[in-house]
Nucleic acid binder design. Structure first.
Lengths: 210, 210
DNA sequence: AATACAACCGGACCGCGGTCCGTTTAGCAT
DNA sequence: ATGCTAAACGGACCGCGGTCCGGTTGTATT
């Protein structure tokens, strides 16, 4: 594995950024990326994320398997690419959108609102999100996850929580993980509103208690 | 998958209970179970849980691969079998042990203490525990997980938390998951005492806030 | 237009977890 | 001891995610 990027936009680790095409990508490569993303969306829509196999995807898109891995690095990377639009939109909402999710509302209100928004987001895209969380790295150290964590941290600080903000954000963030929420709703039949309600309760107590 | 147990002690899903041998197990089967558990412990001790491959284990124990799966059902089942001793000991501590982890102390103190105990437990056995959490079922619906969850639920109720106890226990329990704790300690270098401290802070606020 | 080189491509290949099924064997009844 | 049956056994087999490498193709340069 080369430590020095071969050319601008390339990424170490054998894969490539899951986001939009890096600048200066060869035309056939760009074409195949679109082909693959399109075919992937079709498969997910038809049969769910679990049915999205790298071999199947390659066959469906009419390319070789190596090409799939060259473009997306791994199955998790592909899933992140599929999610990147929805993820960016969500980030935009809590960073620049209207209150109470976006800036402008008091921190506790923002925490409550952003949690509720996150819950509905996960109930919509959770299947993909879970598939994207294949490794520990993908779960915690990928840019969107870091951004989300930092945002929680900031809101907690603004709300006056003095205890270790990093760990506090981790603990609260763990309550919003896709695996947990999907399990609560899918297996135990918890209503989505209960999730948001309990989140409100939780975060209110944490912030209010001192 | 048959819904009716073939014989007492057998378990649906193609595997067998991860605990001690079911009554009336054929002698060669029992012998192989011990052989396998022993070989598995050796491999884990030598090279870590990630190096524990089903093929390798079978080869090392001198049995066929089919036998491994017959005995333990899956890799996760094997990991649970390896953990069952430590897990039972931990259960004993919070159910029947001396306070403040066991009964006899006020609920908030018990919550704090049992969380701290859980944290050290995970820092000791977390690698195996993480490997045992392969599927959603293994994470949430396996008997020890259910027992643990119920215990948290009970303590919260006793401490006067009125909000949905099941979800509250899920949220707080998520802050103690192996993947999260191991990541915090291993990647971010958080000191174990900080984990316990933050847990104390978290649970105190949740209980105290109303 | 010809050349050269880097990026790209495809598919054979690997090790993994898990399944299947023909064969062997333990335990019991006679 | 002998024979019967259900359980246990072993290893070939499968589909999966991921890697590798020899051949191909796009693109910049002259």
């Amino acid at each position: 594995m080369s430590l020095i990027p071969i050319r601008p936009g390339a990424q170490s680790g054998g894969g490539r950024a899951p986001g939009p095409a890096a600048e200066s990508e060869r035309r056939d490569a760009a074409r195949n990326r679109e082909l693959l993303l399109c075919a992937a969306r079709e498969i997910v829509e038809e049969s769910g994320a679990d049915a999205l196999t790298m071999d199947r995807l390659a066959q469906r898109a009419g390319v070789g398997k190596g090409t799939v891995f060259r473009r997306f690095g791994s199955r998790a990377g592909l899933m992140m690419a599929l999610l990147s639009g929805a993820e960016a939109e969500f980030q935009g909402r809590f960073m620049f959108g209207p209150p109470p999710v976006g800036p402008g509302a008091p921190p506790l209100e923002r925490l409550i609102a952003v949690g509720a928004a996150r819950i509905s987001w996960i109930l919509e895209f959770g299947e993909l999100a879970r598939a994207a969380d294949a490794s520990v790295y993908n779960r915690f150290d990928v840019p969107p996850a870091v951004l989300w964590h930092r945002h929680l941290e900031m809101l907690l600080r603004e709300a006056g929580v003095t205890a270790d903000p990093w760990l506090m954000a981790s603990a609260l963030g763990a309550a919003l993980e896709p695996e947990l929420l999907l399990h609560a709703v899918g297996v135990h039949g918890i209503a989505p509103e209960r999730l948001a309600e309990t989140w409100r309760e939780l975060v209110t107590r944490v912030v209010g208690g001192g």
